[in-house]
């Protein structure tokens, strides 16, 4: 929705990926501008990882085209500029953490300093440990450092914080924010709504291989959540009067509590006060991303 005038980093045009009977990704198009942080959000099997894999050149689209930084995902020149942390971080056996980082540095024309990458991995104490003996969360941190080895301008993170504890997760979010400040373009998939909400400028929601919503976290929330004002009123209050209020779409009574549905909850509230309606205990419900998400997924079925 935004970033139309910004320089383009990634463009997907009418991309479909078909596996024998199933369309994992079904005719999607979107553009990501340079410097954007975009979350691709959706339940398992929505097509998030397939979409990322195609952007990385790991899978070929059945039809449609993908451009990254003005080239194809398979171009070596493009690969110099991208980094990826895949969903399943696997490490070579019988190789130490330090050796793995150095190996990845050797793949790129311009690489970040070893010490810096080791710090990113948070494995300063375990540099001489065999990478296979690391815990799941540590392996993901190492995967992140390896993704950063070539100082990429576009970074892909596929479910980056799965398996991390609360502390490492917030540390990780902190790192992502500082990368954003450094002007990197970041594409992450997640099924943690909080992660998408906190980190990204933009959320692309996917379900059943299709894009079901695309916008800022606020836009998504406002479009997809049900908003209402709840008040307490005497039983004598006529609901029909409330139904005539501007902006009110529906009124519902639940014992003493009355729910007034409408997009502009502030206007409803002000109107209630101005009209001197005998109500008390105002409560505004604006909805959160979780709710938007589950509404969306219900629609998708």
């Amino acid at each position: 929705m935004k970033a139309r005038n910004v320089e383009m980093a990634i463009q997907l045009s009418e991309v479909t990926k078909q596996y024998s009977a199933k369309k994992a990704v079904d005719y999607i198009s979107f553009t990501i501008g340079k410097g954007e942080i975009v979350s691709i959000l959706g339940p398992n099997g929505a097509g998030k990882t397939t979409t990322i894999s195609m952007m990385l050149g790991l899978k070929k689209p059945t039809s449609g085209s993908i451009q990254i930084l003005g080239g194809f995902p398979s171009d070596r020149k493009v690969k110099q500029e991208i980094g990826a942390m895949l969903q399943e971080v696997s490490v070579m056996d019988t190789v130490k953490v330090s050796e793995l980082i150095q190996l990845f540095r050797s793949y790129y024309d311009k690489s970040l300093p070893y010490e810096y990458l080791l710090k990113l991995s948070g494995l300063e104490k375990d540099a001489e440990v065999m990478a296979t003996s690391l815990s799941g969360g540590q392996k993901r941190r190492l995967g992140f450092a390896l993704a950063m080895a070539g100082d990429p301008s576009v970074l892909f993170l596929d479910e980056p914080t799965v398996g991390m504890d609360v502390t490492s997760r917030s540390e990780f979010w902190e790192m992502i924010r500082s990368l954003k400040d450094a002007g990197k373009t970041i594409i992450l998939t997640t099924h943690y709504l909080e992660e998408a909400d906190r980190l990204s400028d933009r959320i692309i929601m996917m379900n059943h291989g299709k894009i079901v919503a695309d916008g800022t976290p606020e836009e998504i929330k406002s479009h997809l959540t049900v908003k209402y004002v709840t008040v307490t009123a005497d039983a004598s209050l006529e609901l029909d009067t409330l139904r005539t209020f501007p902006g009110v779409t529906e009124v519902e009574r639940d014992g003493e509590r009355i729910k007034l549905y409408g997009d502009d909850t502030d206007a409803i509230l002000i109107h209630l006060v101005r009209q001197n309606i005998a109500v008390r205990d105002f409560d505004i419900h604006k909805g959160n991303l979780d709710e938007a998400f589950s509404n969306l997924m219900k629609e998708g079925v």
Binding site: L56, G57, L58, R76, K79, Q80, I82, G83, A84, L86, E88, V89, S90, V91, M92, D93, F104, Y107, Y108, D109, G143, L146, A149, G150
Partner: peptide, 18 residues
């Protein structure tokens, strides 16, 4: 076999290493 089945070769395919 190990590197392909455990996803290591995918990781390498993303890098510029031919």
């Amino acid at each position: 076999v190990q590197e392909r089945t455990q996803g290591w070769s995918h990781q390498l395919k993303v890098t510029p290493l031919p």
